[in-house]
Write a protein that binds this DNA or RNA. Structure first.
Lengths: 200, 200
DNA sequence: GCTCCTATGTTGACAGTGTTAACTTATGGG
DNA sequence: CCCATAAGTTAACACTGTCAACATAGGAGC
């Protein structure tokens, strides 16, 4: 089916290519669904080949979700590093980076938050997700230490921040933020409201 | 396949039954997916019968999503009506009602926010969704008029509120709010933070 | 250098899905 | 009363995820 002349029987790095291909298909969007067989087709292997590297389609999804959280984490930390010093600046930088990540990888972002709620098996996934949470927590602790933010239970505030960013991201992705109903810059409005709720 | 003796050839109200059955299946298990054929099976009709009432599976999903928004809207307004007078009370009542709706109908709630972002065809869907938005807007306008809330562009603030509630709902549903990381009552924390960001 | 184990890839099958076409049945408006 | 037509059925198609049986080659051990 594929011209075997060019390609060795053993791919060499099929596992990585499967993930990359699937990621690419998730990016192409429209439907945020991809099919395992189509992935195999694009990777130039037979439809059953992926099963030598992943027990399940779910396993592939889980791994992709984990990768997604790692990328999101990196996006946030680099944004924070480049943030302009004062806490307010970093806060906005991180928030914007978060939302931008989601809106420019809608399929992946969706996947990250659909991966089997009940399955606590994926400890790695939870870990990656918690790293994201950690960035927010850290920011809040610094703010409270500096006296810029009210002294409240950091955990609850971090939850509020995460929820706010997640909400904006999804509603934007979904196209539910129609400008005439939601104002010119809902992201800025949301972040401002959030910050004013945290500040002293 | 079914005993035709008891049941008339024509169901009489199959359209409604399909929707109800599908809703029930969405309610049942953690997997928020259901299959059209299984719906038909449970309704006691052949697998192609639904196509006499819905052109697509997507059409059924869209209608269910719309119903979901209507129910959510009702949940919010009744909560608001029973709210204990002062704005803060209503605010919390509405917020809690929103989140409770989501967490007790996770499948439906998910569906509501997955129904084809791009498809502006479903004007009805958008309308129902906007009604939800309207409840929040109304609350904010009252608060500003009473002088309890800062005078800012209501649209942006409403977006912030919606995003916050949506975020809490989804993260709770997804099981990402693990108490040791997020404090004893993340919902209360989030609503408090939000309200404090809105208040004068 | 040869052999053979095993990881990797292929083929073919199975059950189940959404969807359509062709056919059947009843029901209600002329 | 008749028959157009809405409503339901059966059979097929092209898919999907998954598995078992088979094929290949790359390298470890001698």
């Amino acid at each position: 089916m594929q011209d075997t002349t060019n390609r060795p029987y053993h791919h060499g790095d099929l596992r990585r290519e499967i993930i990359e291909t699937a990621m690419a298909m998730l990016h192409e969007d429209k439907g945020w669904q991809f099919t395992l067989r189509e992935v195999a087709r694009r990777a130039g292997v037979s439809h059953a080949a992926p099963y030598k590297h992943f027990p399940d389609k779910a396993a592939l999804l889980a791994e992709m979700a984990m990768l997604g959280f790692e990328r999101l984490h990196k996006a946030m930390t680099t944004a924070k590093a480049k943030g302009p010093g004062p806490l307010r600046g970093e806060f906005f930088a991180v928030g914007r980076a978060y939302v931008r990540f989601g809106t420019s990888n809608p399929g992946l972002y969706r996947l990250m938050f659909s991966a089997e709620a009940g399955k606590a098996v994926n400890v790695h996934l939870s870990e990656s997700a918690l790293a994201v949470f950690g960035v927010v927590t850290e920011l809040l602790e610094r703010g409270q230490a500096e006296g810029v933010l009210r002294k409240r239970d950091v955990r609850g505030r971090a939850a509020a921040c995460w929820a706010q960013m997640h909400g904006i991201t999804m509603l934007t992705m979904e196209g539910l933020f129609q400008l005439e109903k939601v104002g010119p810059d809902p992201l800025d409005a949301a972040l401002t409201t959030l910050l004013e709720g945290l500040e002293n």
